[in-house]
Each structure stands twice: as C-alpha cells, then as structure tokens.
Simulated scan of single mutants.
Amino acid sequence: MAKQKKVTVEADATTRAILEHWDHIKPNDRIAHLVRDLARGFTRSLQTRLADHGVSFGHWIFLRAMWHKDGVTQRDLAVQVGLTEPTTHTAITKMVELGYVSRRRKAGNLKKQYIFLTKEGRELENKLVPLAQDVNKVALEGIDDETQKIVRNSLLTMIHNLAVDEALSLADGKKIPSTRSLGIRS
C-alpha cells in the first residue's frame, strides 16, 4: 500500500469534517461513504479549476458527454449523464445563453430538438480536459501503477454489481423515486 503524504493545509469546514471522519472518527466506515467523499473531493477539486475558466461543474458534465457524442436529444443527454430531464433542460438553456451549445431540429424530424456543441463549446475541450487530468494526477499521487489497476478494476466491478442490482430491482417493479416525491407526506 502506498504511503500517504501528510500535509498540513488550511482547509474549509467541509474538508476538515471529511478528513476528521476518515482519520479519527470512523476510519473503517463503509465503502459507500468512502466513495461518496472521494467523489466529492474530485468534484470540488475540479470545480476550483473550472472556475478559472468560468465554467460550472454542472456544465462540465454535459460538455464532457457531448465531446464524446454530439447532436443528441435532451432526453438522450439526460440519460447519458444520469440526470433528470428538467435538470438537463435548465443546464442546456443556460449553456445556449453562454454560447457553448445550440438547439436545432434535424431535417425530417421537426418534433425533436437536438443539442449540438458550438465552436466555443468544442474549443473548451482542449482547455478543460487537462484540468480533469490534473485532478486525477493529484488524486493518484503516491499510488503505484499496480495498485491503480486494482482500484480501477475494483471500482468497475462495483459499478457493474450495482447496475445489475438496479436492473433487477426495476424488473421487480421497484422504481427510483424522485427526491421531490419522497418529500411529500401522504
């Protein structure tokens, strides 16, 4: 196992709480909590870098997906990034205002609107992807290649296992409720 580099830095309350939890309170807490805090750390680290370019993390998610597959419907984009259609609609509307994407209809299909990157949206890829690569580099510092391979394979296995579990639950008629519906008392 790679040795952790201990560095003393001035951290905000959220970061201090996370570090306190893992260093002292519950260092052997569930993997789900560990992964959640790890994901939060990745997100916050990338957010600080994206802010230098005036791009929100929410827009990054959609841009990243569209750099891989452009010209998709709003519904397809929502599915691709794992967010709801209303959330996607709000983000895309703002991204149109910012000049990152445009909405267009394809010939022969006047019903559906497709989302396309603009020149500016496409050019952001060369500026922003290195920021994400930098975050990964920071996160993996001090972890040897073999351990990285084990971690990657383990995470991919967990993703697969949870996707199968979700599919089985949905096949049994269970649904993933919206946060809004759970907040309503009967």
Rank of each mutant, 00 (worst) to 15 (best):
L155Y: 12
I176Y: 05
M66T: 02
I115M: 02
F116C: 01
R44T: 03
V151F: 12
S169K: 15
R122Q: 11
I18W: 02
A65C: 07
A51Y: 02
R105V: 09
A163M: 11
G41H: 06
P177S: 12
P177F: 06
H21R: 15
S102G: 04
K149L: 13
T14N: 07
I159C: 11
V7L: 14
R30T: 08
R75T: 15
K127V: 04
G82D: 11
V7A: 11
R75L: 13
V81M: 05
N126R: 14
V164W: 04
L170V: 15
S45I: 01
V55N: 00
V72D: 02
N126M: 05
R49Q: 14
R44S: 06
L131W: 02
P86V: 05
V35W: 06
L117H: 01
G142A: 06
E120R: 08
S154L: 10
E125L: 00
A171P: 01
V55E: 00
N161W: 03
G142F: 04
Q80C: 08
E141L: 08
I159Q: 12
V81L: 03
T14D: 09
K149H: 11
N109F: 10
V138M: 08
L128W: 00
K94H: 09
R64V: 00
R185H: 10
E20R: 14
T14W: 12
T48C: 09
D134G: 06
R185W: 08
P130C: 05
V135K: 00
V81I: 15
V151Q: 03
I159E: 09
N126C: 03
D172T: 03
R40F: 04
L110F: 03
N153T: 08
G108V: 06
T84G: 15
